[in-house]
Each structure stands twice: as structure tokens, then as C-alpha cells.
Nucleic acid binder design. Structure first.
Lengths: 165, 165
DNA sequence: GAAATATGAATGAACG
DNA sequence: CGTTCATTCATATTTC
């Protein structure tokens, strides 16, 4: 069983998540999580728990400047609120113009004992699609069915955005 | 340039780190990390994050040795006497199966030159790890806050209410 | 020099 | 919510 045990968000999903995190402040409500998950499902495999964890991790990572070295940047003792402005931080940085990557060897199966020394390394796996997503309307379904997919996450349904507008 | 993209501890630093690790500090607190980093700074360049990561990796590595991964074949490379009786607590078990994604959508055609004129292929080729690597190298990791890129991400107006302008 | 390995770094998931 | 564990990724190092 070589299935992925760990969810890995696709770039599109990441994009959406980042955007949501950027505009959202804190922990999304449960309904929101469901909604987001539903939308993200259109772009890849995802569960509500994944989205929830992602937001939690994201927030925890954002608030890691004064408390601990935690995981992330080197050391940021600034008192500025990074929660909304961490745009300046660059996490996934790749070194300067050294990205002249060798030809894509599309096989990193390290456990494989076979010597897959395929001499042909013609990169062929790059069909990067447009980043534009047809992510249109997020279903504003007023379906308050309470699914216990992730159990009680302790999410507060305090501000239901749907009711606000 | 071409400097150490990755921190490499000097032998002296490694010595200190190992000694500290041997003392039984399974989880050094942040203050400890700071202190240790201070100490290590006298022997070479280091950041708190480095020390933190080092301890994390060290601990994870030790745990792995004890339990034995048993990936696939009987790839048992035991014989390490370095593992001490530090913290052989019970390993955190994670009952899988919850997020076992079906492999139906994992067969991403990388070549993509087929006559698949399907209109929506946004996330078609973004599941395999090898592609992720290539994408990283190419810096295709989408900019989180790129407005025009995210353009019609379709953050529906319901969500925009957080965007208090 | 390429493959195999060691290991630092990133991150999803879980615990308290 | 903050912290920690576990897994993966990327790169430095070693080996052949």
C-alpha cells in the first residue's frame, strides 16, 4: 500500500487556503471549514480534518515569533503582528538563480531496491496548468447538517458569516 | 554566495549538541534552545532554528531506530548501539485509514500531450511527489498573495465579509 | 561523477 | 491554541 498517508495540498488548494487565511482572521468556524473543504475537494483530495489542521498550523506558525523558536523563521523578535502581514516572510525560498534544475528524474523511490538507472532523463512531467481556477461560487448552501466528520473540533460557531451579510 | 544553504554543524557544535541530547533533554524548552544557541554561536554560525531542528531530528531518529520501520521488506538495519534508554515511551500511534485516499485520481498523466481537451485540468498533475520537487525547484510555488494570480479564485462574497475594507 | 546515504529543514497531524 | 511527534523533502556528504 503505497498510498499517501499524509495529505499534501495541491498548489491550487494551497493557494485557496492561503487566500482564505489571509482574509480570515482566526480559526474558521466549523461551517466554514466544511465549506472550504467542499470547495477544495474540487481541486484535490482533502478532508475537513485536513483543512482544519492546516489552519491551525498556519496560525500557530504565524504566531511563532516571540514565543519560541518553534518551527519556521530564524528568529523574529519584532512585536509586529504578523498574523495578517506575514506576506513579507518567505518560507519556501529557493536559492538564487540556481534553479537550472537537471532534467527531471521522475523517480525518487528510495526504498526500491531495483537499480532504476534509466539513462533517459528527459523531463516530461511538466504540464503546469494555469493557476487560474474556475473556482466560482462557493456553495452557499444553507444546509446546517451537522456531520461529525472530524468530531468536535472545538470550533466556535460564533460568527457565522452567512448570517452576517 | 553558494554559501551554506543548509546549516552544517561544526564538529564542535555537534559535540555539544550530542552531549546535551545525551543528558536527557528530550524536549528542550525554548529558553534552553536559546541558551544552547548562544553557546553554539561561539563555535560557529548557528540559529535557534537550527538547534531546534537538530534536536527534533535527533529525537526522531533515535525513536526510529528503536522501533524499526519495517518498510516493505525486512530491511532491518539494526545494530546501532547509540540509542540509549532515553525515552522509549510509547510511540504515538496514528490509526490510518481515515484519510486513505482512493488512487483513482493519482494516475496523473504527466505528458499531457494527449488529446484530452478537457476544459478543467487545474489540478490534474499535482499529486505526485516527484512533481512537487520539480515545481519547487522551478519556483512555481504559487505566490500566496498574488492578487492577479488568484484573481477569480472565487472567494465568494460570503467570505469576503472578512475583508473589512 | 553518479548513486547511496546522512541529515537539516518543512509541514501535516496529534496531544495537552 | 501552543507544543510536539512523525513523515517527507532537499541537500550536503560519502561512497563507489
Amino acid at each position: 500500500m503505497t498510498a499517501r498517508q499524509r495529505w499534501t495540498p495541491t498548489p491550487l488548494q494551497l493557494q485557496i487556503l492561503e487566500r482564505l487565511f489571509d482574509q480570515g482572521i482566526g480559526t474558521p468556524s466549523r461551517q466554514k471549514i466544511k465549506d472550504i473543504t467542499k470547495e477544495l475537494s474540487q481541486h484535490g483530495q482533502i478532508a475537513e480534518q485536513n483543512a482544519y489542521n492546516w489552519f491551525q498550523n498556519r496560525r500557530a506558525r504565524s504566531m511563532r515569533k516571540q514565543h519560541g523558536v518553534g518551527v519556521g523563521s530564524s528568529n523574529n523578535k519584532n512585536g509586529e503582528s504578523e498574523v495578517e502581514t506575514e506576506t513579507l516572510n518567505e518560507k519556501r525560498k529557493r536559492p538564487d538563480g540556481l534553479l537550472a534544475l537537471p532534467d527531471g528524474n521522475n523517480n525518487n523511490n528510495l526504498i526500491g531496491t531495483t537499480t532504476t538507472t534509466s539513462p533517459r532523463h528527459e523531463e516530461l512531467c511538466f504540464q503546469c496548468p494555469e493557476m487560474r481556477s474556475n473556482l466560482h461560487l462557493l456553495g452557499v448552501h444553507s444546509d446546517p447538517r451537522d456531520e461529525h466528520l472530524v468530531g468536535n473540533l472545538g470550533l466556535s460557531d460564533s460568527y457565522n458569516l452567512y448570517d452576517h451579510v
